[in-house]
Design a protein around this nucleic acid. Structure first.
Lengths: 140, 140
DNA sequence: ACAAATGTAATCTTTACGGTTACTAATTAA
DNA sequence: TTAATTAGTAACCGTAAAGATTACATTTGT
């Protein structure tokens, strides 16, 4: 969803867009969008102003925002499940596996982010326009 | 959890291990382990037999099972959230973004799996033994 | 002052995952 | 052949996370 919102903002080329409009595109509720925008603000990806006639816009050009930044901004939980209960420390494997898996998963997540870094928001917009002839220029 | 179970099986070097024993190491319920083992069986990573004195073991040597296979065997949902509701097709971005994001996410997931491929179960066991002096050889 | 937006809290629903119990089916061992 | 052991599986519960919704305070522009 984060990428969707940011893509709309990129599409609007710096115009301020309200959470209600963004919610309309994502087909969700403005409050959901605002909560997401808070995360994106913290990551310095968007700028938001309150008040009449305001809204949000990208804080950088779409070519200078890559999807790894977006991923990190909204990443809620680890992509790999950690068991709810602690492993049995009486078992030698259970006792020591956590540290090992953390290493392996950190490496995998790093590989994921390296790949996401290759795509910018501008790239996403380009792909959308290429794959969808109708998406010419700013509409609703 | 899947990696944990497989690590125990690798640690036991081909001995058959019951779901109750595996559950003991992971500190969970045998039924949970059995459900997981079904996925691993479908992926031809473990062999399981019923009956007294039976249980599960790896169907290949630990050096020939990598974590990408494990990931694919137990992968339940897409790692990237898809919105519950469909995007608003009246918005040009909403209309066409899904296909684009699927491409990007497929690439990212591929990068993830390429990285996981680099680690085998034997590697995991080696890391555990290295990081944890107590994990010498088969205990409980 | 008023209208338009965001920030934010409270609550509800849905979904996924793990946990638990209970039962059936298969296989081994005595 | 009988009994014990073990996996397969269904049914149901509890919990946690994400989104959905409503409501309200706060800020800002006209």
């Amino acid at each position: 969803m984060a990428v969707h919102v940011l893509a709309v903002l990129a599409y609007k080329e710096g115009d301020r867009v309200t959470s209600a409009m963004l919610a309309g595109s994502v087909n969700t509720n403005p409050v959901i969008v605002r909560r997401l925008l808070l995360s994106l603000q913290r990551a310095r990806l968007v700028e938001t102003r309150k008040g009449a006639g305001s809204g949000s816009r990208l804080s950088r050009s779409p070519g200078r925002i890559n999807l790894a930044e977006v991923y990190r901004a909204v990443e809620a939980v680890e992509p790999f499940a950690s068991p709810a209960r602690k492993a049995n420390t009486a078992c030698p494997v259970g006792h020591c596996i956590r540290k090992t898996l953390n290493q392996v998963f950190a490496s995998a997540e790093n590989a994921l982010e390296r790949d996401l870094e290759k795509t910018t928001l501008a790239g996403v917009i380009g792909m959308i326009k290429a794959s969808c002839p109708g998406a010419a220029k700013k509409a609703g």
